[in-house]
Amino acid sequence: MKSIEIRHLKKYYGAIKAVDDISFSVSEGEFFAFLGVNGAGKSTTISVLCGRQEKTDGQIWIGGKEQSDEMKRILGVVFQDSVLDKSLTVRENLACRAALYGIGGEMFTRRLSELTETLSLGDILKRPVGKLSGGQRRRVDLARALVHSPRILILDEPTTGLDPNTRRQVWSVVHALRKSQHITVFLTTHYMEEAADADHVVILDGGKIKADDTPLNLKNRYAFDAITLYHVGEKALQNLSVPYERAGEGWRIRVENTAQATELIVKNPQLFSDYEVTKGGMDEVFLAVTGKRAEAL
Protein backbone atom coordinates (compact mmCIF):
# COMPACT_ATOMS: atom_id res chain seq x y z
CA MET A 1 0.00 0.00 0.00
CA LYS A 2 1.13 3.55 -0.77
CA SER A 3 1.58 5.94 2.14
CA ILE A 4 1.91 8.95 -0.14
CA GLU A 5 1.06 9.22 -3.80
CA ILE A 6 1.67 12.41 -5.75
CA ARG A 7 0.52 12.77 -9.35
CA HIS A 8 1.37 15.69 -11.66
CA LEU A 9 1.85 18.09 -8.75
CA LYS A 10 2.42 21.69 -9.75
CA LYS A 11 3.03 24.71 -7.58
CA TYR A 12 3.58 28.00 -9.39
CA TYR A 13 4.19 31.46 -7.93
CA GLY A 14 3.27 33.59 -10.90
CA ALA A 15 5.87 32.82 -13.56
CA ILE A 16 8.07 30.86 -11.14
CA LYS A 17 7.54 27.11 -11.35
CA ALA A 18 8.64 25.98 -7.87
CA VAL A 19 7.30 22.46 -8.45
CA ASP A 20 6.65 21.51 -12.04
CA ASP A 21 4.58 18.42 -12.74
CA ILE A 22 6.16 15.87 -10.40
CA SER A 23 4.82 12.38 -9.71
CA PHE A 24 6.13 9.83 -7.24
CA SER A 25 4.92 7.53 -4.50
CA VAL A 26 6.14 6.40 -1.11
CA SER A 27 5.28 2.90 0.12
CA GLU A 28 4.10 2.16 3.65
CA GLY A 29 6.96 1.72 6.11
CA GLU A 30 9.48 2.97 3.56
CA PHE A 31 12.43 5.25 4.33
CA PHE A 32 12.11 7.78 1.51
CA ALA A 33 14.68 10.51 0.75
CA PHE A 34 14.04 13.67 -1.22
CA LEU A 35 17.28 15.12 -2.52
CA GLY A 36 17.92 18.48 -4.15
CA VAL A 37 19.80 21.76 -3.91
CA ASN A 38 18.26 24.79 -2.18
CA GLY A 39 15.42 26.05 -4.32
CA ALA A 40 14.94 22.67 -6.03
CA GLY A 41 11.34 22.53 -4.76
CA LYS A 42 11.70 20.08 -1.84
CA SER A 43 10.33 22.37 0.87
CA THR A 44 7.55 23.61 -1.40
CA THR A 45 6.51 20.00 -2.07
CA ILE A 46 6.47 19.32 1.69
CA SER A 47 4.51 22.52 2.33
CA VAL A 48 1.88 21.45 -0.17
CA LEU A 49 1.90 17.88 1.13
CA CYS A 50 1.29 19.10 4.70
CA GLY A 51 -1.45 21.49 3.59
CA ARG A 52 0.49 24.63 4.49
CA GLN A 53 0.23 25.81 0.90
CA GLU A 54 -2.37 25.27 -1.81
CA LYS A 55 -1.24 23.37 -4.91
CA THR A 56 -1.61 24.89 -8.36
CA ASP A 57 -2.57 21.54 -9.89
CA GLY A 58 -2.22 17.80 -9.41
CA GLN A 59 -3.39 15.17 -6.95
CA ILE A 60 -2.08 14.06 -3.58
CA TRP A 61 -3.20 10.93 -1.77
CA ILE A 62 -2.12 10.32 1.81
CA GLY A 63 -2.78 6.92 3.39
CA GLY A 64 -4.86 6.00 0.34
CA LYS A 65 -7.22 8.97 0.67
CA GLU A 66 -7.26 12.28 -1.16
CA GLN A 67 -5.49 15.05 0.74
CA SER A 68 -7.68 16.92 3.23
CA ASP A 69 -7.33 18.63 6.61
CA GLU A 70 -8.22 15.30 8.27
CA MET A 71 -5.17 13.72 6.61
CA LYS A 72 -3.00 15.98 8.73
CA ARG A 73 -3.71 13.63 11.62
CA ILE A 74 -1.54 10.92 10.07
CA LEU A 75 1.37 13.28 9.34
CA GLY A 76 4.07 14.27 11.84
CA VAL A 77 6.55 16.94 10.81
CA VAL A 78 10.03 17.76 12.11
CA PHE A 79 11.08 21.14 10.72
CA GLN A 80 14.63 22.15 9.87
CA ASP A 81 14.68 24.60 12.80
CA SER A 82 12.99 23.91 16.09
CA VAL A 83 9.57 25.59 16.07
CA LEU A 84 8.64 24.94 19.68
CA ASP A 85 8.11 27.75 22.21
CA LYS A 86 11.43 28.42 23.90
CA SER A 87 9.92 30.04 26.98
CA LEU A 88 7.60 27.07 27.67
CA THR A 89 8.70 23.80 29.22
CA VAL A 90 8.93 20.59 27.20
CA ARG A 91 5.76 19.32 28.87
CA GLU A 92 3.83 22.55 28.21
CA ASN A 93 4.89 22.50 24.56
CA LEU A 94 3.84 18.89 24.08
CA ALA A 95 0.55 19.40 25.94
CA CYS A 96 -0.35 22.34 23.70
CA ARG A 97 0.56 20.50 20.50
CA ALA A 98 -1.28 17.34 21.61
CA ALA A 99 -4.41 19.41 22.27
CA LEU A 100 -4.41 20.45 18.60
CA TYR A 101 -5.16 16.79 17.77
CA GLY A 102 -7.78 16.51 20.52
CA ILE A 103 -5.40 14.67 22.85
CA GLY A 104 -5.68 15.77 26.46
CA GLY A 105 -6.16 14.53 30.03
CA GLU A 106 -5.46 10.84 30.60
CA MET A 107 -4.76 10.21 26.94
CA PHE A 108 -2.02 12.85 26.92
CA THR A 109 -0.47 11.57 30.16
CA ARG A 110 -0.28 8.06 28.65
CA ARG A 111 1.20 9.29 25.37
CA LEU A 112 3.68 11.54 27.18
CA SER A 113 4.97 8.65 29.24
CA GLU A 114 5.42 6.55 26.05
CA LEU A 115 7.35 9.36 24.35
CA THR A 116 9.37 10.04 27.49
CA GLU A 117 10.50 6.44 27.46
CA THR A 118 11.17 6.21 23.70
CA LEU A 119 13.02 9.52 23.45
CA SER A 120 14.55 9.66 26.95
CA LEU A 121 12.84 12.92 27.90
CA GLY A 122 12.47 12.16 31.62
CA ASP A 123 15.12 14.63 32.82
CA ILE A 124 14.08 17.52 30.62
CA LEU A 125 10.26 17.51 30.78
CA LYS A 126 10.14 20.44 33.20
CA ARG A 127 12.87 22.48 31.52
CA PRO A 128 12.16 25.37 29.13
CA VAL A 129 12.91 24.36 25.53
CA GLY A 130 15.17 27.41 25.13
CA LYS A 131 17.54 26.01 27.75
CA LEU A 132 18.05 22.60 26.09
CA SER A 133 21.10 21.52 24.08
CA GLY A 134 20.82 20.98 20.31
CA GLY A 135 20.43 17.22 20.67
CA GLN A 136 17.85 17.46 23.47
CA ARG A 137 15.86 20.00 21.45
CA ARG A 138 15.86 17.71 18.42
CA ARG A 139 14.52 14.85 20.60
CA VAL A 140 11.72 17.15 21.77
CA ASP A 141 11.01 18.13 18.13
CA LEU A 142 10.67 14.42 17.35
CA ALA A 143 8.37 13.99 20.35
CA ARG A 144 6.21 16.86 19.08
CA ALA A 145 6.01 15.27 15.60
CA LEU A 146 5.06 11.92 17.16
CA VAL A 147 2.71 13.20 19.88
CA HIS A 148 -0.40 12.15 17.91
CA SER A 149 1.08 8.79 16.78
CA PRO A 150 1.31 9.64 13.05
CA ARG A 151 1.77 6.95 10.39
CA ILE A 152 4.05 9.18 8.30
CA LEU A 153 6.98 11.13 9.74
CA ILE A 154 8.24 14.00 7.59
CA LEU A 155 11.78 15.12 8.39
CA ASP A 156 12.68 18.42 6.71
CA GLU A 157 16.49 18.54 6.80
CA PRO A 158 16.42 17.44 10.44
CA THR A 159 20.17 17.26 11.03
CA THR A 160 21.32 20.44 9.29
CA GLY A 161 23.61 22.38 11.63
CA LEU A 162 23.89 19.56 14.18
CA ASP A 163 27.23 18.13 15.29
CA PRO A 164 28.06 14.54 14.17
CA ASN A 165 27.26 13.06 17.57
CA THR A 166 23.82 14.69 17.72
CA ARG A 167 23.18 13.64 14.12
CA ARG A 168 23.94 10.05 15.07
CA GLN A 169 21.60 10.31 18.07
CA VAL A 170 18.76 11.65 15.91
CA TRP A 171 19.18 8.86 13.37
CA SER A 172 19.38 6.13 15.97
CA VAL A 173 16.05 7.36 17.39
CA VAL A 174 14.44 7.55 13.93
CA HIS A 175 15.65 4.07 12.93
CA ALA A 176 14.48 2.62 16.27
CA LEU A 177 11.06 4.18 15.67
CA ARG A 178 10.87 2.72 12.18
CA LYS A 179 11.70 -0.68 13.55
CA SER A 180 9.28 -0.58 16.48
CA GLN A 181 6.37 1.36 14.97
CA HIS A 182 6.77 0.72 11.22
CA ILE A 183 6.18 4.34 10.38
CA THR A 184 6.93 5.74 6.95
CA VAL A 185 9.80 8.25 6.97
CA PHE A 186 9.88 11.03 4.36
CA LEU A 187 13.24 12.80 4.53
CA THR A 188 14.66 15.84 2.80
CA THR A 189 18.36 16.24 3.36
CA HIS A 190 21.53 17.89 2.17
CA TYR A 191 23.64 15.00 3.38
CA MET A 192 24.31 12.38 0.72
CA GLU A 193 25.21 9.70 3.25
CA GLU A 194 21.77 10.10 4.86
CA ALA A 195 20.07 9.65 1.48
CA ALA A 196 22.26 6.60 0.83
CA ASP A 197 20.61 4.82 3.77
CA ALA A 198 17.12 5.30 2.33
CA ASP A 199 14.98 2.61 0.66
CA HIS A 200 13.96 4.98 -2.13
CA VAL A 201 15.43 8.28 -3.38
CA VAL A 202 13.96 11.01 -5.55
CA ILE A 203 16.30 13.69 -6.87
CA LEU A 204 14.64 17.01 -7.59
CA ASP A 205 16.18 19.84 -9.60
CA GLY A 206 14.54 23.04 -10.78
CA GLY A 207 11.15 21.78 -9.62
CA LYS A 208 11.37 18.61 -11.75
CA ILE A 209 12.22 15.01 -10.86
CA LYS A 210 15.59 14.02 -12.31
CA ALA A 211 15.89 10.52 -10.83
CA ASP A 212 13.64 8.15 -8.88
CA ASP A 213 14.94 4.76 -7.70
CA THR A 214 16.66 2.87 -4.89
CA PRO A 215 20.13 4.15 -3.89
CA LEU A 216 21.70 0.92 -5.23
CA ASN A 217 20.07 1.22 -8.64
CA LEU A 218 20.97 4.91 -8.83
CA LYS A 219 24.57 4.16 -7.95
CA ASN A 220 24.71 1.35 -10.51
CA ARG A 221 23.25 3.62 -13.15
CA TYR A 222 25.01 6.90 -12.47
CA ALA A 223 28.09 6.25 -10.34
CA PHE A 224 31.31 4.39 -11.00
CA ASP A 225 32.88 1.78 -8.75
CA ALA A 226 36.52 2.18 -7.76
CA ILE A 227 39.40 -0.07 -6.76
CA THR A 228 41.98 1.47 -4.49
CA LEU A 229 45.30 -0.25 -4.92
CA TYR A 230 48.31 -0.07 -2.58
CA HIS A 231 52.03 -0.90 -2.92
CA VAL A 232 52.02 -0.79 -6.72
CA GLY A 233 54.08 1.40 -9.08
CA GLU A 234 52.50 3.68 -11.69
CA LYS A 235 54.19 1.79 -14.52
CA ALA A 236 52.27 -1.38 -13.69
CA LEU A 237 48.99 0.58 -13.75
CA GLN A 238 49.68 2.01 -17.19
CA ASN A 239 49.57 -1.53 -18.59
CA LEU A 240 46.02 -2.02 -17.30
CA SER A 241 44.61 0.56 -19.78
CA VAL A 242 42.04 1.92 -17.31
CA PRO A 243 41.72 5.45 -15.91
CA TYR A 244 43.45 5.91 -12.56
CA GLU A 245 44.42 8.68 -10.16
CA ARG A 246 46.54 9.15 -7.05
CA ALA A 247 44.58 8.49 -3.82
CA GLY A 248 46.67 9.10 -0.70
CA GLU A 249 49.30 6.39 -0.49
CA GLY A 250 47.67 4.32 -3.22
CA TRP A 251 45.98 4.60 -6.62
CA ARG A 252 42.27 4.75 -7.40
CA ILE A 253 41.19 2.88 -10.53
CA ARG A 254 37.79 3.77 -11.96
CA VAL A 255 35.72 0.79 -13.15
CA GLU A 256 32.27 0.62 -14.71
CA ASN A 257 30.86 -1.85 -12.22
CA THR A 258 31.72 -4.67 -9.84
CA ALA A 259 31.92 -7.18 -12.73
CA GLN A 260 34.67 -5.16 -14.41
CA ALA A 261 36.50 -4.91 -11.08
CA THR A 262 36.35 -8.69 -10.67
CA GLU A 263 37.59 -9.25 -14.22
CA LEU A 264 40.52 -6.87 -13.66
CA ILE A 265 41.51 -8.57 -10.42
CA VAL A 266 41.26 -12.08 -11.89
CA LYS A 267 43.36 -11.10 -14.93
CA ASN A 268 46.09 -9.33 -12.91
CA PRO A 269 46.37 -11.20 -9.60
CA GLN A 270 50.03 -10.13 -9.18
CA LEU A 271 48.95 -6.46 -8.76
CA PHE A 272 46.04 -7.01 -6.40
CA SER A 273 47.62 -8.09 -3.14
CA ASP A 274 46.51 -5.03 -1.09
CA TYR A 275 43.34 -3.34 -2.41
CA GLU A 276 39.74 -2.36 -1.70
CA VAL A 277 36.70 -2.14 -3.97
CA THR A 278 34.21 0.65 -3.23
CA LYS A 279 30.88 1.36 -4.86
CA GLY A 280 30.16 4.82 -6.25
CA GLY A 281 28.46 7.14 -3.73
CA MET A 282 25.37 9.32 -3.82
CA ASP A 283 27.63 12.34 -4.36
CA GLU A 284 28.52 11.00 -7.80
CA VAL A 285 24.91 10.09 -8.51
CA PHE A 286 23.83 13.60 -7.60
CA LEU A 287 26.55 15.16 -9.75
CA ALA A 288 25.72 12.96 -12.71
CA VAL A 289 21.97 13.57 -12.43
CA THR A 290 21.92 17.32 -11.75
CA GLY A 291 25.34 18.49 -12.90
CA LYS A 292 25.70 20.14 -9.48
CA ARG A 293 28.35 19.16 -6.92
CA ALA A 294 27.09 17.95 -3.55
CA GLU A 295 29.33 20.51 -1.79
CA ALA A 296 27.26 23.24 -3.36
CA LEU A 297 24.22 22.12 -1.37
Binding site: K72, V77, F79, R97, L100, R144
Partner: peptide, 14 residues
Protein backbone atom coordinates in the same frame (compact mmCIF):
# COMPACT_ATOMS: atom_id res chain seq x y z
CA UNK B 1 9.26 34.43 12.43
CA UNK B 2 10.06 31.28 14.43
CA UNK B 3 7.94 28.95 12.28
CA UNK B 4 5.56 28.05 15.15
CA UNK B 5 2.69 29.14 12.88
CA UNK B 6 3.74 26.50 10.33
CA UNK B 7 3.79 23.93 13.12
CA UNK B 8 0.17 24.78 13.99
CA UNK B 9 -0.89 24.67 10.36
CA UNK B 10 0.44 21.14 9.81
CA UNK B 11 -2.00 20.02 12.52
CA UNK B 12 -5.76 19.85 11.80
CA UNK B 13 -6.18 23.45 13.02
CA UNK B 14 -7.58 25.82 10.39
Amino acid sequence: VTGARDDFLVSPVS
